[in-house]
């Protein structure tokens, strides 16, 4: 442990991995024992960030507060549906926030956005491959994103932090839509390559 602490980079990574483990155990405490103190810890951690995202995407302060409540309530209700082998906690919370925002904008009660794990026609249990992916995903994705050229990273940030449509990104950055799409494709490809190298 001491050895790890002496090296800066691995320490950061190790801390993040340990942190992921903490988040997962908080969720499992919520799911299994309806633990409100675990829930509060998760709220303190993610509530302000979810609000930050909503505000960046153009929501008013009131709407953003309201969406934080919705997102956290969904986490409380669905904690038992979170599957650690599928991915990390922040990804799961991101999808809940994305869906809550879409629900707020839409009038029709049809869920076009689904939890990808609940829609399959045939019952496909997570295989070894996805299990490995789930454990490593967070750090690999983060590492890959850190190495993206700024022009690609900017497009990803606009899409995911501000929920900005690709058409809007094109206007904002004064780029043709095709250029925005190819930057998105390149960024995604980089992620996929990094992941595949580890298989």
């Amino acid at each position: 442990m001491l050895k790890v602490l002496q090296m800066e980079k691995p320490t950061a990574d190790a801390a993040r991995i340990a942190d992921q483990a903490v988040l997962k155990s908080l969720l499992s405490d919520i799911a299994l024992s309806r633990d409100k103190s675990a829930f509060e810890a998760l709220f303190v951690r993610f509530g302000p960030r979810v609000k930050g995202m909503m505000i960046k995407s153009g929501a008013s302060n009131d709407v953003a507060e309201d969406l934080v409540q919705e997102v956290m309530l969904t986490i409380w209700r669905k904690a038992s549906l979170y599957a650690p082998e599928r991915g990390n906690v922040s990804t799961w919370i991101f999808t809940i926030a994305r869906n809550a925002r879409i629900d707020r904008l839409r009038r029709q009660p049809v869920q076009a956005y689904v939890d990808v794990d609940t829609v399959s026609l045939v019952c496909d249990a997570p295989n070894a491959e996805t299990a490995v992916m789930g454990r490593q995903n967070a750090e690999i994705v983060r590492a890959a994103m850190d190495t993206l050229p700024a022009e690609q990273r900017d497009v990803i940030d606009l899409a995911f932090i501000q929920f900005m449509p690709q058409s809007e990104i094109a206007k904002t950055l004064e780029l043709p839509i095709g250029t925005v799409k190819s930057r998105v494709r390149l960024a995604y490809k980089k992620l996929k390559q990094n992941l595949e190298e580890l298989r």
Binding site: M53, R86, G87, N88, V89, S90, T91, W92, I93, F94, T95, R98, V116, T130, M133, N137, A138, V141, R142, M145, I156, D157, F160, I161, A187, Y188, L191, K192, L195
Partner: peptide
């Protein structure tokens, strides 16, 4: 799922 992981990092 991988694309959503970018959202998680963000």
């Amino acid at each position: 799922r991988l694309a959503e992981a970018m959202g998680g990092v963000c």
